[in-house]
C-alpha cells in the first residue's frame, strides 16, 4: 500500500477566477468522458452515421431525379439534411444527459460531486456542439463524394455560423427540458424525451 492521497479537498478558493478555473476543468471532464464513450461505442457511431448518410442521400437522390437544373435544389437539400442532422445530434446528446447516467447508475456520484448543475449542462452542451460539428463534417464529405457538384465556394459562412449558433442554442434548451424528464418520471420520461 504505497499510494497516499496528497491533495486535500475542501481547500478550494472562493475567488471568482479560481471558481471559474475549477468549473471549467469540471466542464472539460464531461467533454472528455463523452469522447471516451464515443470511442468505446465506435461501432454504433459508424452504424448511426451510415443511417444518417443513407437518409440524407436518399433525399438528395430524389432531388437529383427532378427535371431541369437540379444543382441548386441538391445544394438546398444537402444543407437541409446537414443542419437537421447536426441539430438532432445536439438535441439527443444533451437530452441523454440524465438518462444515460441513470442507466449506468452513476447519477448519484455526478450529483454529489462538487460541480454546479450549470457546469454539468455546459460541459454536456459543449461536447454536443463539438461532436455535432465533427459528425456533420464527416457527413458532408460522404455527401460530397456522391454529389461532387456540391460547392460551398460562394457560401455565406458568417450567416451559416449565425444560423448554427441560434439553432444550437435553441436545441440545447429543448435538450435540457428533455434531459430533466427522466428525473421526474424515470421510464416514461425517457420515452417522452424521444418523442420530443
Amino acid at each position: 500500500m504505497s499510494y497516499v492521497p496528497t491533495v486535500a479537498p475542501g481547500t478550494g478558493s472562493r475567488a471568482p477566477h479560481r471558481i471559474l478555473a475549477r468549473e471549467s476543468k469540471a466542464a472539460m471532464a464531461f467533454v472528455e468522458r463523452n469522447f471516451y464513450l464515443t470511442k468505446r461505442y465506435w461501432g454504433w457511431e459508424v452504424a448511426f452515421l451510415v443511417y444518417t448518410a443513407a437518409s440524407s442521400l436518399s433525399i438528395m437522390f430524389i432531388g437529383a431525379s427532378q427535371d431541369g437544373d437540379t444543382n441548386r435544389l441538391i445544394l438546398f437539400l444537402a444543407i437541409g439534411t446537414l443542419v437537421w442532422g447536426y441539430l438532432n445530434s445536439v438535441f439527443m446528446n444533451v437530452a441523454e444527459t440524465v438518462a444515460w447516467e441513470r442507466w449506468e447508475g452513476t447519477i448519484e456520484y455526478t450529483m454529489m460531486a462538487p460541480v454546479s448543475r450549470v457546469t454539468h449542462m455546459f460541459g454536456m452542451s459543449l461536447f454536443a456542439i463539438i461532436y455535432g460539428l465533427i459528425r456533420s463534417t464527416v457527413l458532408f464529405l460522404v455527401l460530397a463524394a456522391f454529389f461532387p457538384e456540391i460547392s460551398l465556394s460562394e457560401a455565406n459562412l458568417t450567416g451559416a455560423a449565425l444560423v448554427i449558433a441560434a439553432g444550437s442554442f435553441s436545441f440545447i434548451g429543448f435538450g435540457i427540458v428533455g434531459a430533466v424528464l427522466p428525473l421526474l418520471f424515470p421510464e416514461k420520461g425517457e420515452q417522452m424525451t424521444l418523442m420530443m
Partner: peptide
C-alpha cells in the same frame, strides 16, 4: 477513463 473523469470533477 472512469477515474480520470471522476477525479477531474473534483478538480484534479
Amino acid at each position: 477513463e472512469n477515474l480520470l473523469y471522476s477525479s477531474r470533477l473534483y478538480g484534479r
